[in-house]
Design a binder for these strands. Structure first.
Length: 914
RNA sequence: GCGUUCUUAGCUCAGUUGGUUAGAGCGCCACGUUGACAUCGUGGAGGUCGGCAGUUCGAAUCUGCCAGAACGCACCA
């Protein structure tokens, strides 16, 4: 890159600059990582977005955070590897494809599995990876050579391997149980895929006739259609109201089925009538009652949510249509007692948003209790550290009560379950990698040597999408390891990016953990917990040192931003409007780790303004070096100059502060520190003071030192705003073609420059300037009018450094006379102020607005008196003097001494106006 | 219902082990274009730290109760 001063545009145009540098970074493969044992690894695996998804604000936040972490690690000299990829997202993608096909008049049930998968792949090829291109716009510094997809051949094999391995270990089994059934997708779901929502519904009271009696019992239900599957009425054995019904039978209305009245303490006598209808096939609790009391199960619903033949009536009609109709019919039959409004919670499918039906079904399960143990313990011991900490509790609660995982899904898009059936019996199957392999075992197991490939039928179902993504950190690096882990060590990549990156305990505050997962808390159970489980199960180690849970991006009304609500701005529009840097900064600026982000596009405005400020500061420094062919930024400061020492000290403070913030993942605090360093310290003070006296030429050396500082500032800014920082950094220095800010060294903290005295002294100057500005504002004195300033200092030491650096005052204020000494005669009719006990006087005879000045002094006196009242209150309290530590008492005494001295000075000043 | 985390300026949030009369950014008000930036500069006004008790010499900070919010888990048909 040229460092010529020519052609620095007066306006900063992110769209041009950002594309330019992104291509440059890619061309030079700065984001590519390979095993290098001379460097420490730092690994991030991306939470793979749905392959056909498009970027939303949640992705923006999530990936910005990952990019900040990986870019800083890269600059710190880590071998930083951020692996990107996409997830096939079984049910989500399949639902999308089904919808698309329906729009084209094609129904899934008219297609064969192969035909459907052809459509799905076509869809994947046209839309797949769009989201990854969008991430590039954001500046994501992923190693794109490693881009993976959960249905890639190698990866898919590892998923099947895991199933086989766990089956062979006895962890996977097949069982008929109550499951959550999604009637729209027509598949089983895991418990985590069900979302409970509070809804306004109706409670139907229905009476059942008692056999051989004119009596009725009344039950209540929110799902009257399920009476078609009733096989009992249940009452509490101690319920005296119903003692006479023990051993009797009741008649289910409409279907006129005779069912027993059973007794069980499960029934709450206080709720409703104390009578419960029992539908074992369609309710979890009822199922358990059914098992216990040997009840018949009537499966009255089809997989698509219509009534089945077993239901006898309303066959083929939708469950919700029937719910209305059956109420009418029950009324007609005289069985409907009443209907009341009722609020209850109903389970909905996370993906299709339809009401879940509990249903008895034969599925594949993974036994969780045992394999979850190390994953629970290591998080509890902070060996895997959660940020924010509060999620440890949620995690523990889930892990301690972890239930077996239903891993089979009645879908086609995904990893087909490697189970081959050779007969109709419950155990007539073998688990194998392929049909061919299955055949041999099947022959033995079935004792039928004539069995052929045609006799084998593979399980139709696919695996839960999370059953593939839980292997993400392993199979990205070593896809055959799952299969071979009994016989060999991890390959070089897995060893380096997984094992070595996660060596030791996470809780080492001395440096950043070497591997971080950045994700949403919503998928803690779906994904995070299961990845930790698979890490210990297969590699014997955690897959990451720390987990950073991001907040949820919400709109102004506090609603989660989602495509369906249409309340999410298009991230690419935002980037076009504010620049990727602007959007990144806007989001990071207002998200403490784990907090939700109330998003308003205007927060990106601040990012854009910041870019503009930086650009203009840069332009100012270089405009005045127009004759230079190359800049010579330098950090060899003039040690005699307070302002240089101060700037250096502020930089050191900031480096230290940022490094600490990163250890706690307080990215917004870190960014705020950089922001303030650049805007408040560098632009508002340092640059102002680097300007020469009016009319005089610019000091080349000063400009070069300013550029030297600027260079450091751009390094500190780079993880957050990679584009503008790279652009400026490239301009500033004499860079060779291979150089880039993104691979330059992170600034080292240098304690020799971190001087509290320099900062204190400069702060005094800042306060004096502020007070002079304030005096001008109150007395309406234009900045151009010269003023006289006397400073009566508290000590010779103060006089000395103020005098030595008095040019700072003259530079920032038009002053015709400046006196600094311990022995200043207080001038009459002057505006005055106190700074650290030092008295500032600005004689303003004839100009001064006496009322305002009196006001100001009186206000200050009032404040001080109140302050001293508090201090004296403490000091006069014997309990305080006896109990408080000596240092605290001494501190109060100092406050009293200084406060009283200041009060005296203020009262003197007041006398002037009497 | 159980559990967890919260409640600080108009908004979004800081506030380290209790110890200056509580800070920042945005927004708001006033003033301001002499060498980069009006996408800017300068100054200013905003809070009895959700409420009530308690512990303590001293509470935004610790404890209890109450009110409200968010999340997780389990749910009565």
């Amino acid at each position: 890159m040229t460092t010529s001063t020519k052609n620095i545009p007066s306006k900063y145009d992110p769209s041009v600059v950002e594309d330019k540098w992104y291509s440059f970074w890619l061309q030079n493969k700065y984001f590519h990582s390979q095993v290098d044992h001379t460097k420490k690894p730092y690994t991030i695996v991306i939470p793979p977005p749905n392959v056909t998804g498009v970027l939303h604000m949640g992705h923006m936040l999530n990936n910005t955070i990952q990019d900040v972490l990986i870019r800083r690690a890269r600059m710190q000299g880590y071998n930083a590897c951020w692996v990107p990829g996409t997830d096939h997202a079984a049910i989500a993608t399949e639902a999308k494809v089904v919808r698309k096909l329906r729009e084209r008049g094609i129904s899934k049930k008219d297609l064969s599995r192969e035909q459907f998968l052809e459509h799905a792949w076509e869809w994947t090829h046209t839309h797949g990876g769009i989201i990854l291109d969008q991430l590039k716009k954001l500046g994501a510094s992923c190693d794109w050579d490693r881009t993976a997809f959960t249905l890639d051949k190698d990866y898919a094999e590892s998923v099947v391997d895991a199933f086989i391995d766990l089956y062979e270990k006895g962890k996977i089994y097949r069982s008929a149980r109550m499951i959550n059934w999604d009637p729209a997708a027509r598949t089983a779901l895991s418990d985590e895929e069900v979302i409970y929502k509070e809804v306004n519904s109706k409670l139907y009271h229905i009476r059942y006739k008692i056999v051989d009696s004119n009596e009725f019992v009344t039950i209540a239900t929110t799902r009257p259609e399920t009476i078609l599957g009733d096989t009992a009425i249940c009452i509490h054995p101690d319920d005296e109201r119903y003692t006479h019904l023990h051993g009797k039978h009741a008649i289910v209305p409409l279907v006129n089925r005779v069912v027993p009245i059973i007794l069980d303490k499960y029934v709450e006598m206080d709720f409703g009538t104390g009578c419960l209808k029992v539908t074992p096939a369609h309710d979890i609790n009822d199922y358990e009652l059914g098992e216990k009391h040997n009840l018949e199960t009537i499966n009255m619903m089809n997989p698509n949510g219509t009534i089945s033949e077993e239901g006898e009536l309303y066959i083929g009609q939708d469950r919700f249509v029937v719910r209305k109709q059956i109420a009418i019919d029950l009324e007609t039959a005289g069985n409907l007692v009443n209907i009341e409004d009722y609020t209850n919670k109903v389970g909905y499918s996370e993906r299709t948003d339809v009401v879940i039906e509990p249903r008895l079904s034969l599925q594949w399960w993974l036994s969780m209790k045992e394999i979850a143990k190390p994953a629970l313990d290591n998080v509890m011991e902070d060996n895997v550290e959660f940020f924010p900490k509060k999620f440890k509790n949620t995690y523990r609660h889930w892990m301690e009560n972890v239930k077996d995982w239903c891993v089979s899904r009645q879908l086609w898009w995904g990893h087909q379950i490697p189970v081959f059936y050779y007969g109709e019996g419950d155990n007539d199957y073998v688990v194998a990698k392929s049909k061919e392999k299955a055949l041999e075992t099947a022959k033995v197991k079935s004792r039928n040597p004539t069995l052929s490939l045609n006799d084998l039928r593979q399980d139709e179902d696919v695996l839960d999408t999370w059953f593939s993504s839980w292997l993400w950190p392993i199979s990205l690096f070593d896809p055959t390891f799952i299969r071979e882990h009994h016989n060999r060590e991890p390959n070089e990549e897995l060893e380096y990016y997984f094992q070595r990156a996660n060596e030791g305990h996470a809780y080492q505050k001395s440096e950043l953990g070497n591997s971080t997962l950045v994700t949403a808390p919503e998928i803690m159970f779906f994904w995070v917990a299961r990845m930790i489980i698979s890490g210990y199960e297969y590699v014997g180690n955690k897959p990451f040192n720390s987990v950073y849970y991001t907040g949820i991006v919400r709109d102004k009304l506090g609603r989660k931003m989602s495509k369906s609500l249409g309340n999410s701005p298009d991230p690419l529009d935002l980037i076009a409007q504010f620049g990727a840097d602007g959007v990144r900064m806007g989001m990071l600026f207002s998200t403490p780790a784990g907090n939700d982000l109330p998003f308003d596009p205007s927060i990106c405005e601040q990012g854009k303004k910041f870019s503009n400020k930086i650009w203009n500061a840069f332009r100012f420094l270089t405009l005045n070096l127009q004759d230079e062919l190359e800049y010579s930024p330098t950090l060899s400061i003039d040690r005699e100059q307070l302002v240089d020492r101060w700037m250096m000290a502020r930089i050191q403070q900031t480096i230290l502060g940022i490094n600490n913030d990163f250890k706690d993942y307080k990215l917004n605090d870190a960014l705020k520190k950089v922001y303030s360093l650049i805007w408040d310290d560098f632009c508002d003070w340092y640059i102002e003071l680097s300007k020469p006296e009016y009319g005089k030429p610019f000091d080349r050396q000063k400009m070069n030192v300013a550029l030297g500082f600027f260079e450091v500032l751009m390094k500190l800014l780079h993880p957050f705003m990679p584009f503008i920082s790279e652009e400026i950094w490239q301009y500033i220095g004499n860079r060779s073609k291979e150089e880039a800010l993104c691979i330059s060294e992170w600034p080292m903290y240098d304690s020799s420059y971190d001087s509290k005295i320099d900062i204190e002294q400069f702060e005094t100057f800042k306060s004096i300037v502020s007070i002079l500005r304030n005096i001008r504002a109150e007395n309406q004195i234009s900045p151009k009018t010269e003023i006289t300033v006397y400073i009566k200092t508290v000590s010779d030491e103060v006089s000395q450094y103020l005098n030595k650096n008095s040019w700072i005052l003259s530079q920032l204020q038009d002053i015709n006379e400046l006196k600094i000494s311990t022995s200043i005669e207080k001038p009459r009719a002057s505006a005055s102020a106190l700074i650290g006990g030092n008295e500032i006087y600005v004689p303003l005879a004839g100009i001064i607005d006496i009322e305002k000045e009196l006001n100001r002094i009186n206000k200050e006196i009032q404040r001080l008196e109140g302050f001293l009242k508090g201090v004296n209150g403490k000091l006069n309290n014997p309990n305080f003097r006896n109990n408080a530590p000596e240092s605290v008492v001494q501190n109060e005494l100092n406050k009293k001494r200084d406060g009283e001295a200041n009060l005296l000075k203020l009262k003197e000043q007041l006398k002037d106006f009497e």
